[in-house]
Amino acid sequence: MPAPSKTIKPFWPPFAAGLALGFVLLLTFVLTGHGLGATGATTRFTAWLGMTVAPSATQANSYLGQMVENGNPLFSWITWQVIGVGIGAFAAAYFSGHLRLQFDGSKRIGTPARFAAALFGGLAAGFGARISAGCTSGLGLSGAATLSIAAFVFLGTFFAAGLIFSRLFRGV
């Protein structure tokens, strides 16, 4: 494996990054008939963890139970896609000098506060994405590309809530 980049390469300009992301999303639609996502995989991972830790409670649960009926919930396209996101992000960070082990946000608000903010933020996002059956990628981005009404509503309340809560809390 070649050495990681020592110089920190600049981020792509937003328009170039947006074009690239648009073509990746279009390729995904052409290949699979649906868009990109994230929480589909974390939900399946939760169901898998549930089967490992508490199988009977997971099977009895009306939400996770339907996911584990047909064998291992991880055997799904979205699982491979999210593994791919990790590989792609690692490669990009490695070859751009962006890879650094850190607890980002600690310098600003301290590690305990940053830990709590990341955990609570993740909890709110994880819960919310189950209500809307999709997150910023799966519903907001991929849905908007199909001109879905739900996607534009999601993006509207996403940005409104983001604006309000970023003024109430300093999480990073």
Binding site: A117, F120, G121, G122, L123, A124, A125, G126, F127, G128, A129, R130, I131, S132, A133, G134, C135, T136, L139, G140, V153, F154, L155, G156, T157, F158, F159, A160, A161, G162, L163, I164, F165, S166, F169, G171
Partner: peptide
Amino acid sequence: GGALVGAGFAI
């Protein structure tokens, strides 16, 4: 869902 994911993003 959008509001909760947005709040989670900000926090």
